[in-house]
C-alpha cells in the first residue's frame, strides 16, 4: 500500500514537471501537442476506488492548468478520462481478474491490450481538451486535425516511456 502510494506521488511530480517544462514548449508543426501527464492517471491501480480516481484526475488537471494559465481545460479532459477509465478496462479486459494492487501496464494488459487502452482514452480526453480550448466549432477541421495528430504523438511517446520504464510483459 505504502509502496504504491509513494510510487504514484513520485510519478505525479515527475510527469507534471516534464509536461510543464518540456512537452508544453514542444511545437511540432504547430498542431501537435503531446499530453504525457495523463500517463499518471492511466497507471493508477486497476481496482482503485472510482470516485477517488475522479478526484485525483481533477486535481491533476487543475495542477497542469495552474501552470499553463488555462483554468479548467485540462481538468475537464482529465475528469472525462477518469470517468471512462473503469468502463474501458471492463470493455477490453472484462474476463480478466486483476489483483487489487495491480497497475495497468504491458505485463497486465499485454502489448496490444495496453495499446488499445491508451489510444482510446488519450483520444477521448484530447478531443475534449482541444474543443474546450477553442470553445467554438469554427475551424472544426483544424481542431480535429490537432486532436488526431496529438493523440498519435502522445500515444507514441507514452508507449516508448512504458517500454523503457514499465515492467516487461511476461
Amino acid at each position: 500500500m505504502n509502496n504504491i502510494f509513494v510510487r504514484n506521488i513520485i510519478r505525479f511530480v515527475i510527469l507534471i514537471l516534464i509536461q510543464v517544462l518540456v512537452f508544453n514548449n514542444m511545437n511540432l508543426g504547430g498542431y501537435m501537442h503531446p499530453y504525457i501527464y495523463i500517463l499518471f492517471l492511466l497507471l493508477l491501480p486497476i481496482n482503485i476506488n472510482r470516485s477517488l480516481l475522479l478526484l485525483i484526475a481533477f486535481f491533476t488537471g487543475i495542477t497542469i492548468d495552474y501552470f499553463t494559465g488555462t483554468m479548467g481545460i485540462n481538468a475537464s479532459a482529465s475528469v472525462l478520462l477518469a470517468y471512462l477509465r473503469p468502463g474501458t478496462i471492463r470493455l477490453f479486459f472484462g474476463n480478466h481478474d486483476f489483483s487489487s494492487k495491480e497497475e495497468p501496464g504491458l505485463s497486465s494488459f499485454g502489448l496490444i491490450g495496453f495499446f488499445k487502452y491508451i489510444i482510446v482514452l488519450v483520444f477521448i480526453s484530447q478531443l475534449l481538451l482541444f474543443f474546450m480550448e477553442v470553445l467554438s466549432f469554427n475551424n472544426i477541421l483544424y481542431t480535429i486535425q490537432q486532436v488526431i495528430l496529438s493523440t498519435l504523438l502522445s500515444t507514441f511517446i507514452i508507449f516508448i516511456v512504458m517500454l523503457f520504464f514499465g515492467k516487461r510483459a511476461k
Partner: peptide, 20 residues
C-alpha cells in the same frame, strides 16, 4: 455517486474555462 461526482467536477471545470 460516481456519475454525480463526474458531473459536478465537469461543471466546475467548464465554469472555470468559461469564466476566464
Amino acid at each position: 455517486q460516481f456519475f454525480l461526482l463526474f458531473v459536478i467536477l465537469e461543471v466546475v471545470s467548464v465554469f472555470l474555462v468559461t469564466r476566464s
